[in-house]
């Protein structure tokens, strides 16, 4: 209970310092409005339909992108993790593709697929695939050989080994990968909306609000909403992971 009070005290303290800094004139109010104003704007915006539509567009694009990433990366990781020669053969290509910062592809993707929702989903998928893929491959490489040998000695079939030994072992690692990817996908979706001036979305809202340079309260309100979405996603996945993998001690260890 006491930690909850301290959490709240920290948050309130931050807002008071911010409010004070603006009121005293440390930062110009035109550039950084005080939190009271930002919060009022946030509440106001949450009641407006166009804003809600932007938020939904962003969250929907994020969810689709994460879904596609999982559907692509988990099977690919399982195949690459269990077939050694395929892993060596693709290694150079993967090592070359992965370090390209996904945002470097924004201009290319805009040209090839246009500025619609497809663009942000494509870029988010490109960025979100890697953590899931690597964590899946890593998990399969780390299976305790004793487990595999025991299963084999009991005459377990190959498919049964995959479903009953390999998958349960890999699941917590894969889930950690998904959690990392969820955060990255959100960053990419918002960035693309912001850079490309997509037709809808939170990033686009911030871009339009900032274009005049006078609506900083709206910009910050959009930022706060984006932060809250990111926080809820991360917190929700963390809780889910803790519930699902209560039996596993390695959940924290896999966070690399």
């Amino acid at each position: 209970m006491r930690s909850l009070y301290r959490n709240l005290a920290g948050l309130i303290g931050f807002f008071l310092i911010w409010e004070g800094a603006v009121r005293v004139g440390l930062v110009p109010e035109l550039f950084v409005p005080p939190p009271s104003e930002v919060l009022a704007t946030t509440v106001d915006l949450l009641g407006q339909e166009p804003f809600i539509r932007d938020v939904i567009a962003t969250v929907l694009a994020w969810a689709i992108a994460l879904g596609i990433s999982i559907a692509v990366a988990v099977p690919a990781g399982l195949v690459l993790g269990s077939v050694a020669w395929l892993r060596t053969a693709t290694r150079a290509i993967v090592e070359f593709l992965r370090p390209i910062p996904s945002v470097a592809l924004i201009p290319l993707v805009l040209l090839v697929v246009g500025g619609g929702p497809e663009a942000k989903i494509t870029l988010a998928v490109y960025a979100a695939v890697w953590p899931i893929l690597f964590n899946t491959i890593y998990a399969l490489a780390e299976i305790d050989p004793v487990l595999m040998d025991t299963a084999r000695a009991c005459g377990t079939s190959r498919s049964r080994m995959l479903t009953s030994v390999a998958l349960p072992h890999a699941a917590p690692f894969v889930f950690t990968g998904i959690r990392m990817s969820a955060a990255i996908a959100l960053i990419l979706v918002v960035s693309t909306e912001y850079v490309a001036g997509a037709s809808s979305g939170l990033g686009n809202f911030i871009l339009e609000a900032s274009s005049g340079g006078t609506n900083m309260d709206q910009v910050l309100a959009g930022t706060v909403v984006a932060g809250v979405i990111g926080y809820l996603i991360n917190d929700g996945l963390e809780r889910m992971g803790r519930r699902m993998f209560r039996w596993n001690e390695a959940v924290g260890e896999a966070a690399k």
Partner: peptide
């Protein structure tokens, strides 16, 4: 004191702060 605040800051997609 600062844990929730930092978790929130980390969750903000940094490009949204570019205008600020």
């Amino acid at each position: 004191y600062v844990g929730p605040l930092f978790a929130f800051f980390r969750a903000i997609p940094p490009p949204t702060l570019v205008p600020v």
